[in-house]
């Protein structure tokens, strides 16, 4: 056991050294000849250009030219820690990777799910918010801690949604004998639980967290059933910019700042 702990410690130390070197290289312009153009420009001009599709509350909102939301606060905090200002570019979702590839922005922060098909053009940070499917049921939950505890319960889902597909997978492949009740929206599914017409609901974490404000007595039970984490994308051609953005995000996660941000907006 102690030997294993020793190897783990060595691994941890290595990771810290590499992470530190990356962060330091980004901040100090180490190996200046190899410095990527985007990071050089951000440092020179003191501006980080962030693209978002600002039509997705509470993450990305634009009203009268003013941007706000979870992602806006996150971007500005990253900018603050990098010592630069942040400007926002409002781009339709379909165009986010294009403006990144064309160098019209430095990073995409836009409730963006990790997309393995885009790894040829973008580097992705780890997730900063998991919007995956969660179980919502009355607080206390009568022993409800995970998906296997849904057996024998009436579970409301929005018809045709990811939650519906997850419920079908649990029932048909996971051998969890739950009864599926379909609703026409996730709000309607959550209302059914609130009214006692269903024992539990499956919904995405954003809908669920927002719903709890207006439906007292309900709670999220257990860990998300699926991983639908939002990530930050930086062009693959900008490794130093990526390293410093990722470093800042990791720091925010480690400090518990992301949790506070989620509480603020959700």
């Amino acid at each position: 056991m102690s030997r294993w702990r020793g190897r783990g410690g060595l691994l941890l130390a290595s990771v810290l050294v590499i992470a530190g070197a990356l962060a330091w290289s980004g901040r100090q312009g180490w190996l200046a000849g190899a410095q990527d153009a985007a990071w050089a420009r951000v440092q020179r001009e003191g501006v980080l250009r962030v693209a978002m599709d600002a039509s997705y509350p509470p993450f990305d909102i634009e009203e009268g030219g003013t941007f706000r939301g979870y992602d806006v606060d996150l971007a500005q905090e990253i900018g603050r820690r990098l010592g630069v200002e942040v400007t926002f570019i409002n781009v339709g979702y379909d165009g986010l990777y294009d403006v990144l590839q064309a160098g019209r922005c430095d990073a995409v922060i836009s409730a963006l799910p990790y997309d393995p098909q885009r790894t040829n053009i973008a580097s992705f940070t780890g997730g900063y918010f998991d919007a995956g499917q969660v179980i919502v049921a009355p607080a206390g939950g009568d022993g409800l801690q995970g998906p296997e505890d849904l057996a024998g319960r009436r579970v409301a889902v929005e018809m045709g949604s990811q939650a519906h597909q997850e419920a079908l997978a649990l029932r048909d492949r996971g051998q969890v004998a739950l009864e599926i009740v379909t609703a026409r929206s996730s709000d309607e599914a959550l209302d059914m639980v609130h009214a006692g017409a269903a024992d539990a609901a499956i919904a995405d974490a954003i809908s669920a967290r927002l719903a709890l404000h207006s439906r007292p007595g309900l709670a999220i039970h257990g860990a998300p059933l699926t991983d639908e984490s939002f990530v930050i994308a930086v062009s693959r051609g900008n490794p130093q910019l990526f390293a410093v953005v990722k470093g800042a995000l990791d720091q925010l996660r480690g400090e518990g700042w992301l949790e506070q941000l989620a509480e603020r907006w959700l």
């Binding site: 979702y93 045709g160 597909q165």
Partner: peptide, 20 residues
């Protein structure tokens, strides 16, 4: 799954479940 609002343009889910 697109895992964004794009999924809500669909008439049919990825697993062929008809949407309303």
């Amino acid at each position: 799954p697109q895992k964004t609002y794009q999924d809500y343009f669909a008439f049919v889910a990825v697993n062929f479940t008809p949407r309303p």
